[in-house]
Nucleic acid binder design. Sequence first.
DNA 1: TGTACATCAGTGAACGCGCGTTCACTGATGTAC
DNA 2: TGTACATCAGTGAACGCGCGTTCACTGATGTAC
Lengths: 218, 218
Amino acid sequence: VPGARNGHDDLVVTEETPEAQRARNPRGQGDRLRVEILQAASRVLAELGGEQAVTLRGVARAAGIAPASMYQHFVDKAELIRGLVDYDFEELRAAMAEADAVRPATDVMGRLRAQLHAYSRFVLDNPGHYRLMLHNRRRTGTADDPRSMTAILAMVTDAFGRCERAGHRLRVAVDRAAVMVFVGTHGRVALYHSDPHDHDTERVLAFVDELIDLVFDE
Amino acid sequence: VPGARNGHDDLVVTEETPEAQRARNPRGQGDRLRVEILQAASRVLAELGGEQAVTLRGVARAAGIAPASMYQHFVDKAELIRGLVDYDFEELRAAMAEADAVRPATDVMGRLRAQLHAYSRFVLDNPGHYRLMLHNRRRTGTADDPRSMTAILAMVTDAFGRCERAGHRLRVAVDRAAVMVFVGTHGRVALYHSDPHDHDTERVLAFVDELIDLVFDE
DNA sequence: TGTACATCAGTGAACGCGCGTTCACTGATGTAC
DNA sequence: TGTACATCAGTGAACGCGCGTTCACTGATGTAC
């Protein structure tokens, strides 16, 4: 019956996506729903921005499942959020790694810029995700966990190290340069996030380049 | 009767502060409660961090009044939040202005550093407030409104301008230098906000000084 | 090959909670006569 | 000077809502015999 509601016990307020009735996963594949849930959560966060917009019931709605079904994959809401943060860190890391890999290995400066540009684009395009990652990150403090800011910073530090070894002279130590540029990049995108006059991606990337120029000697 | 509850229709969960019975303000002084409410909201935000922790009922509880009383001073919750943001911007501006005024007028570099240090301290000490200010700021985009990031940046730009006129040479234009250092400062405090290994105020201030050194020639 | 059954993916209904908001009110106090 | 009254600061109780979570369940499907 077209238009028939699947029986939620609460009204679906935003009728936008009627969400075709989900086909149940086959026997051994119960875990597939887990990533579908994370993708749904990611969509919800992107559309509504702000962690408080990510509710168990809202994500269930977006995934087209019953709220109770969440509990087969996440013990509680906090674990759902942690899962989402890990998912996002992996997306960011992958975007930076790909930007790096796509350039010739010898173009060390180009790879450095490309990584920082990928970082900027990710943050500009996903403000809600970025805020979530910032305020819910792991407490590890080591670069071991690839899902941490420390690991992202380590990628940038590596890129600076390659530049220095290739003969590009820095005005400060490698790790200081990396922190300065990374932190400056973050500051730029974060500070101007909600400013409607400043959503010009190109200007942000130009600022990042300006920062990079500042730490190199020449 | 000591210990007697004033009749809230919901239970007060955190019994911490029994909040002595408020004395009603005299006739013409109804507005005094407005600032008491803002101060209570400020306390709630500082203690619980995060905008979603600031609820009408929670603030009313902290102020020792009935939830309904909020509506004589704020038309709805959104206006309470706006009021809180304005209140916070004024606090930040005042802290920076005082840091500047306390030094001899001729010590232009000291005044610049003092302003940025005051900014950093405010952000480090009030993470919840700072996040609220960032994500709920005015859309003006002009420095006219003293309660905006633009106005704060304008203060920093002025300070850099004074340094340059006093003979300190910059490697980039005054407004670029101001943006870079301001944005870098913001990035540093914001990025490391929730990192327990990095709550050392002195290290943050040293980073800010390092940034300042970087934009000056020499 | 046929069938009983355990397993598995997912559900429906209900719960108690704190929230924002409304509305008719209370009682003290300054003011008009 | 005395008193009726309008004004003002602030309240108590109730509302409907969406939330996170629990629990007993359903029904399809692979497996053991």
